[in-house]
């Protein structure tokens, strides 16, 4: 590999600062009680006023029952897990077919399974709200989970198609020649081999679900809060360096952070996230 030029290094460092520094003021702000213009650091910290305010502020407020953070967090996790399980279950057989077979209309199927990523979510969301109101699942967990399947399935299918493409059918055939039945070959050979891929698909689906705002916002009608909808209303009503909003931003970032650490650990390769999601496939050589 060629060494990076000095100019390139400056560019990388600049970008690093741009993408990592913005978390810093939010961490500061989350501990600030007062941060008057034009001070660069908070003028009064949370711990200075703790117990003296008539109601809890900042982190204390977030962790008190009145903030509603607990239910929002719980909803996000429950909806995320349910969405991820359903998305993986629904996508797994399709991914296997797409990886193994060539058939007429395959390109159309592949395109159809990708389109939800491109079609405006607001269009799907508004139509879905009307549909769900009609069948009585608007403003319910079921409704939100079903809504979240639309943006997650395309990614789950893609990730798992790649997994099955990388899985040489010879492994299964070898197991069969060694006396394993179809079922044994599946449970003892296939499942363990695709497990990291399945885990990635599951985590990625969970991540997408935990980040979806508009669909939740439309379908829940404000009745069920998730972390993104809660953050939305705080940003909508709050000031720029408001401690509660800042704290909430940090909490909302937790699922992503955890995902990134697990994904890196699972794949051991920092380009894997891109390769398994939407990057077009390339082969190293044209030989």
């Amino acid at each position: 590999m060629v060494r990076l030029s000095p100019a390139g290094r400056v560019f990388v460092i600049a970008m690093f600062l741009v993408f990592s520094l913005p978390f810093l003021p939010l961490i500061l702000a989350s501990f600030a009680f007062r941060w008057h213009w034009p001070e660069l650091l908070p003028t009064q910290w949370l711990w200075d006023v703790r117990g003296t305010t008539p109601y809890p502020v900042g982190w204390d407020y977030l962790f008190s029952p009145i903030s509603g953070l607990g239910p929002a967090f719980g909803n996000t996790v429950v909806i995320g897990i349910a969405t991820a399980i359903l998305a993986v279950a629904v996508s797994l057989p399709a991914a296997r077919v797409l990886a193994r077979y060539r058939f007429r209309g395959k390109a159309v199927v592949e395109f159809f399974l990708l389109v939800p990523v491109i079609v405006p979510q607001i269009a799907v969301g508004m139509g879905m709200l009307l549909l769900f109101m009609r069948i009585g699942i608007a403003r319910t967990y079921t409704g939100i989970i079903l809504a979240h399947l639309v943006p997650t399935i395309p990614y789950a299918v893609r990730i798992m198609t790649a997994v099955f493409q990388n899985l040489d059918p010879q492994y299964e055939e070898q197991a069969r020649t060694l006396g394993a039945g179809r079922l044994t070959a599946f449970t003892r050979i296939i499942i363990p081999m695709v497990m990291p891929g399945l885990a990635t698909a599951f985590l990625f689906s969970f991540l997408i679900s935990s980040n979806v705002f508009l669909l939740t916002f439309l379908i829940s009608g404000g009745r069920l809060q998730t972390l993104p909808t809660m953050l939305f209303s705080h940003i909508e009503s709050g000031a720029a360096l408001d401690a509660t909003t800042a704290g909430l931003v940090l909490i909302v970032s937790v699922p992503g952070l955890v995902f990134l650490i697990i994904a890196d650990w699972l794949t051991g390769d920092h380009t894997a996230l891109g390769r398994t999601s939407m990057a077009p496939s390339t082969r190293k050589n044209s030989v």
Partner: peptide, 23 residues
């Protein structure tokens, strides 16, 4: 470096909105 470059990717757009607001 790559870890930090991917961090914005895995948080909701709303987190970005809050940051841009704060800055």
């Amino acid at each position: 470096l790559s870890f930090f470059f991917r961090l914005p990717l895995v948080v909701p757009y709303l987190v970005g909105a809050a940051m841009v607001g704060a800055l």
